[in-house]
Design a binder for these strands. Structure first.
Length: 474
RNA sequence: GGUCCCGUCGUCUAGUGGUCUAGGACGCCGGCCUCUCAAGCCGGUAACGCCAGUUCGAAUCUGGUCGGGACUGCCA
């Protein structure tokens, strides 16, 4: 039997990294087994669903390279792959269940049900002990599935092993709301059956719902898929990763200077390991060795420090041309203008040095802004190195040394400035920092000689001069 | 309260009865390199929640206990 897996996100918010991790595992499993990866949109909650969010989901998947074989946009043999298009079908399924005596209309009010739950709780019974089929049949109210009480529900979960739920612990859940809209349980199970889903790999938060899904699947005559419940992603505080922890939406990382390959790699290490001594690996390698049965049972904390490190690893490993192209995008966006030819050349002459020290793509503009426009030294940098004894001498000595240069390149600049250090009998640290601040506007910058070479003699000399004047004036 | 899940360094994990005085990675600390910042290199820090039991032998098996978590809706 061929593997058919799906992800079924609800478009009720920007796609969460936890859902993306689940998508990744499903995708890896499909690619590893040569199976089919399906994208279905679970938009039964019409109130909260929005196309903007569906677009966000698709954009996120595309960004990461998680291509789907069937589903929204790409189509397939099973219709639209959007649940809101199939409401009539779900209603038929629900009413058919009622006709066969496997489900029933529940005429009780929410208040009555609430009361029953309270009673059950006070008696320390299963909370839904009393939420069962009333003695007298009704024809109005939401439709509940009548949970068979004769046998426990058992299944073998690919990550958790043998699972067993007592029938009495499963409540008669609603499958069709009184307004005729199907619930998640009905729509999801119906689709999984119709689409011939073979494996359902989803978050562990759905584990308690699984017995319901199995029972429903059997009731509508489908074959039960193999389940794999993935460990949840936690925030630093050990609670389910949520908005409270800041950036839980994939979009935040897409816009935050992270490389998609780095994100993929990081997500793959959460709950899965490719081997004892490896952390960084390619997508192809992950596909090669991934299997749902190897997924860990325990929850994983989403560690931003490690993500940042992996991102740096990927940035340094990028092809120089790719890095430059990505950097250009960031720089132009930050500066609000496109780079002129000479701007671009200046950047390219030190791009290798920038690549080595970039952790996030969005940090690039600040590192090289001095190449494109005049930069005023920030107060901290100025106070730290310029308000010191002998700085004026350093500035003028450097200026005269540099202005006498015939060739303007890294070697000659370094030669000139080393000579200056000897003349002044001061160390490199003390003698070069003022020049760095004067030229780049900051105590932190790419290497000085290369930066000067890239900027050009005219600008360098002018900035040294300007710094000297600012020093004299203060 | 109930049902269910989980428990190896701060974090992600390797580990399936002996090769574990528990390995790797991030982080952190120290050093080297060095024009700043990174990167790189070297070294260090730090864990089998606890108690019984099984066994010649347990991180690995069993029971209990403690701790954490998810679910408990006409949301998904």
């Amino acid at each position: 039997m061929s593997v058919r897996v799906r992800i079924a996100p609800s478009p009720t918010g920007y796609v969460h990294v936890g859902n993306i991790r689940a998508a990744l595992f499903n995708w890896l499993y499909a690619r590893h087994t040569g199976g089919t990866f399906i994208l279905r949109i679970d938009d039964t909650d019409v109130e909260r669903s929005d196309v903007e969010y569906e677009d966000d989901i698709k954009a996120g998947l595309r960004w990461l390279g998680l291509d789907w074989d069937e589903g929204v946009d790409v189509g397939g043999p099973h219709g639209s792959y959007r649940q809101s298009d199939r409401f009539d079908h779900y209603r038929e399924v629900a009413h058919d269940l009622v006709a066969r005596g496997l489900a029933y209309h529940d005429p009780r009010s929410p208040e009555e049900l609430e009361e029953l739950r309270k009673v059950a709780q006070s008696e320390k019974r299963h909370p839904n002990y009393y939420i069962r089929r009333p003695d007298t049949p009704a024809t109005t109210g939401p439709i509940r599935f009548s949970v068979p009480q004769d046998a426990p529900v058992e299944f073998d979960d690919m990550v958790r092993g043998d699972m067993r739920f007592e029938a009495g612990a499963v409540d008669d859940f609603v499958i069709l709301r009184s307004d005729g809209v199907p619930t998640y349980h009905l729509a999801s199970v119906t689709d999984d059956v119709d689409y011939r889903i073979s494996h359902v790999a989803r978050g562990e938060d759905l584990l308690p719902s699984t017995p319901k899904h199995i029972l429903l699947t059997k009731a509508i005559g489908g074959s039960v898929p193999t389940y794999a419940h993935l460990p949840l992603l936690f925030g630093p505080d050990g609670k389910k990763l949520s908005k409270r922890h800041g950036d839980t939406s994939l979009r935040a990382y897409r816009e935050g200077g992270y490389l998609p390959q780095a994100m993929m790699n990081f997500l793959a290490t959460l709950g899965w390991s490719i081997g004892a001594d490896r952390t960084v690996f390619t997508v192809a390698e992950a596909i090669e060795s991934f299997d749902l049965v190897d997924v860990s049972k325990n929850p994983a904390v989403f560690d931003l420090d490690k993500l940042a490190w992996i991102n740096g690893e990927y940035i340094r490993a990028q092809d120089p041309e790719d890095f430059e192209a990505g950097a250009r995008t960031e720089i132009e966006r930050s500066m609000g203008r496109s780079l002129a030819a000479d701007d671009w050349e200046r950047f390219r002459s030190i791009s290798g040095l920038v690549q080595e020290r970039t952790k996030f793509m969005v940090d690039i503009p600040d590192q090289v802004r001095f190449l494109f426009e005049e930069v005023a030294a920030d107060d901290d940098s100025w106070a730290k190195v310029m308000d010191k004894e002998g700085v004026a001498e350093v500035l003028s000595a450097a200026s005269s040394r540099l202005s006498g240069l015939d060739t303007w390149d890294t070697e000659s600049i370094e030669g000139a400035l080393r000579g200056m250090l000897e003349d002044l009998e001061i160390g490199a640290r003390k003698g070069l920092q003022p020049l760095r601040v004067a030229v780049t506007g900051s105590v932190v910058s790419p290497p000085l000689f290369e930066s000067m070479a890239a900027l050009g003699s005219e600008s360098v000399l002018a900035r040294l001069d300007a710094a000297g004047r600012r020093l004299a004036g203060s």
